[in-house]
């Protein structure tokens, strides 16, 4: 057990160090891509906490991502607060939305939970359009370059952006590792495996689930808020159904219930689309075929298969 802990520390420390080191060797294009992938992988990790570890399949996470994105963006554009404060506002807002929606949606389960979260997210998307006066509706708005700095660090600078994305990713990774190794995380896994038994053992299952949604939403919001200030755009497409399905795909591809799976899945999907779009216009066709093949031949996702076949201690 302790040996496994050490291996796990070594692995994740290694991944973080590797990501940190990569910024010095990557060509500009991939450097920028990796920064974006790290931000989005944090979103996927948040999703994984809920789906992979707690067993709750939400189809409305775009709402939490968008809450972070718009919380931050509107705080800057409407109230003129600084990027650092706006980032905190975005995360808090997203977490709050997560807890409120979670408290309602948790009255349902299974397919109904999927649909309820989907409906709330759809209502959120339409709300953004409805308040077009402030949000510019579907077009969205730009966060001015001058507003995108935190204590003198210009977030539009490639190295600063990479480093900021790295910090967001590391925070998410450390949080996931801590949760997974903690008693709290073990209860979540117990709920996933057998909710009734967890309840009989005396755990307040509903409260654990709500906490999981809160954590998951806060990571989604962090990712959304960071995306806004790092890439300078706030738009309603990030609140659409597609962006609720994407983290599900990333997590399933990488391996649900593995800490590194979301990163692997996000990276894999990004380059799958990027490379195949060079070959054919119908790159989503390739994405579709890959998805079908994965479910047929690697249902646990990439990291999940790795754990099943080789590295059993993978968290």
């Amino acid at each position: 057990m302790t040996a496994d802990m050490r291996k796990s520390l070594l692995l994740h420390g290694g991944v973080l160090l590797g990501l940190l080191a990569l910024q010095y060797v990557l060509p500009a294009y991939h450097h920028g891509n990796l920064a974006r992938v790290m931000v989005l992988a944090s979103y996927a990790m948040g999703y994984n906490l809920l789906f992979g570890y707690t067993g709750l399949l939400s189809l409305g996470h775009a709402l939490f991502f968008a809450a972070g994105l718009y919380g931050t963006g509107l705080a800057i554009s409407q109230f003129g607060v600084s990027a650092g404060v706006a980032l905190a506002v975005g995360v808090l807002f997203g977490t709050l939305v997560g807890i409120v929606i979670g408290a309602l949606a948790l009255r349902t389960e299974g397919v109904a939970f999927m649909i309820v979260t989907l409906m709330f997210a759809q209502a959120g998307y339409l709300t953004i359009l409805y308040f077009g006066q402030y949000t510019r509706g579907d077009e969205g708005f730009v966060i001015a370059l001058a507003d995108r700095n935190i204590s003198g660090w210009d977030l539009s600078d490639p190295s600063v952006r990479y480093f900021a994305a790295f910090i967001v990713f590391s925070a998410a990774l450390l949080m996931c590792l801590t949760v997974v190794k903690s008693r709290f995380g073990k209860v979540l896994i117990a709920i996933r495996e057998n909710e009734e038994r967890a309840r009989m053992l005396g755990y307040n299952v509903d409260r654990f689930k709500l906490a999981a949604i809160g954590l998951s939403a806060s990571l989604a919001a962090l990712s959304g808020a960071a995306y806004g200030v790092l890439f300078g755009y706030v738009g309603a497409s990030f609140a659409s159904v597609q962006y609720s399905i994407l983290p599900l795909l990333w997590v399933l591809l990488g391996g649900a219930g593995t800490v590194l799976g979301p990163l692997v899945g996000t990276l894999f999907m990004f380059y799958l689309i990027d490379l195949s779009s060079g070959i054919t216009t119908a790159y989503m066709l390739i994405a579709g075929v890959v998805l079908v093949f994965l479910t047929l031949f690697a249902p646990q996702g990439l990291m999940g298969e790795l754990r099943r076949r080789a590295i059993r201690w993978l968290p």
Partner: peptide, 24 residues
């Protein structure tokens, strides 16, 4: 800009794509 080393970017139609891309 960074992979194809294009001289310029061109041709975008839909407003939300323009606004999302222009900062970059």
């Amino acid at each position: 800009a960074t992979q194809h080393n294009c001289d310029i970017g061109f041709g975008t139609l839909f407003s939300h794509v323009v606004i999302g891309s222009a900062p970059r």
